[in-house]
Design a protein around this nucleic acid. Structure first.
Lengths: 250, 250
DNA sequence: GTCGCGGTGAATGTATACAAATATTGGAAC
DNA sequence: GTTCCAATATTTGTATACATTCACCGCGAC
């Protein structure tokens, strides 16, 4: 251990490995060598092993039958299922919140975030403050999950959100400069409002259906960046893992 | 490493620790000591650490803020949410299977398992072959999840099934000798048939709703063994983790 | 030329050693 | 008797050492 880098080695290993996978430094199918990584990251094999186990859980790595791991290859179907899964669990959280009831105060807190998102969006596509939007969108989704008041559901939601390209912020970096996908942000915000309203009125089925449909917005973005928008794909973290994605690497 | 126990140390650690938690050898709230466990299990700390990480993921252990783990305390609400979560993901798997279509051959294979379950159940409650029923029920649920043809969904289903008392076989050991809960097996089998039929007819919404309702059968069993059936609770693995459960320990 | 096989090297899985952090216990002061 | 503090002892987190297993490579036989 050196001088200033005494920050928990495990965290360094996790972030370092995750970045190397998402940026494509480690190509799909590559075997991840513990010793090489430990050397590069300046930590020992032990925290590297723990980080690898975590990323296997998150679906970024795949255990090889013989031992060791390789960078997992994702198909479009995998990402689609991940998005559907996220929508389903967000839907569960919203349904439970609606059915079990949520104190008005916490709903008001959600409204406050939504008002700020309105501010960040601005009147038209040219005035969007993207940095703020991304943060606020993430905060809203986290708050929404919390409304279920269920640690079990929340933990599972965190898991599926961590899956590559399945989270609610997965495509925002790419949408920033592309008017085509920008419009969907207004639709998304409408979903947000309707979901909170449904929970407030104890409409469980409506809240669930809305949450699912909301997640499916990501499907359009996925196909855009896998197809005609491929030249902007390098802005989408992790899309290089998808088999057939044409990412222009530096 | 000794003579014959050269079986993968990690597996030994995982099973040993899991058993100690489920049987209550390690009481709820106890700090799990790595060194003590390593000594007792005859392995080193390394595989013990990995096993602990895995059980944290499964929800049997809880990380302490200061470091290390303790046996997690479950509330009834936690188990209820776990069951609801399992039903939701099984529902997703069934809906996807119905919507995307499944070759008739694989549905026939499910029918075959169901026929065997009928055989194990017998004509009345007195003739039930429980050993067979448990195995076949687990096989059916696994086959059902597989119909979705989605590795992502299947993996998540495996996860929630591993959660304490959330799996489809969690209460079967207890139901064996109690006529009261035995009747629900016939209801469960009716659900099984209806789910396969719904998938065969591409009725996604129906398949999903049935799968959810099917999981909720476990709720009745949970409350039975937490209440009037408490004296049979020692047959339910893991129920000692639930705060307020009155398990008569040996 | 292709297939099979043995050897060598590297990689993982496991065990142990070390250091920083934390819990505990004993004692002293109030 | 209670509370605070300090010294000790244990615990975790990390690093390294060891051994078994796996993979790759070259060589020989068919």
């Amino acid at each position: 251990m050196a001088e200033a880098e005494k920050k928990i080695s495990y965290q360094r290993a996790l972030m370092g490995l995750r970045e190397r996978i998402l940026t494509g430094t480690l190509a799909v199918g590559d075997r991840v060598s513990e010793v090489a990584l430990a050397r590069d990251l300046g930590v020992s094999r032990t925290p590297v092993r723990e980080a690898m186990a975590e990323l296997v859980e998150q679906g970024l790595l795949e255990r090889m039958p013989t031992g060791g791991c390789m960078v997992r290859s994702l198909t479009r179907a995998d990402v689609v299922d991940g998005i559907e899964l996220r929508g389903t669990i967000e839907g569960l959280a919203c349904r439970l919140a609606a059915e079990r009831g949520v104190p008005e105060m916490r709903l008001t807190a959600c409204d406050a975030i939504l008002a700020k998102i309105d501010g960040a969006l601005g009147p038209g596509s040219e005035h969007t403050d993207f940095e703020s939007y991304m943060q606020l969108n993430a905060r809203f989704h986290q708050a929404l999950g919390g409304l279920s008041d269920s640690a079990v559901v929340l933990k599972e939601l965190d898991r599926v959100t961590a899956m590559p390209m399945a989270g609610p912020s997965a495509f925002l970096q790419g949408q920033a400069l592309i008017p085509q996908t920008l419009r969907s942000l207004f639709v998304a915000q409408d979903h947000h409002r309707a979901i909170v309203e449904a929970i407030r009125h104890r409409e469980g089925a409506r809240a669930e259906a809305l949450a699912r449909e909301h997640a499916r917005l990501a499907l359009r973005n996925l196909d855009f960046f896998l197809g005609e928008g491929a030249r902007h794909a390098e802005r989408i973290p992790g899309i290089s893992l998808v088999a057939g994605a044409k990412v222009l690497e530096a």
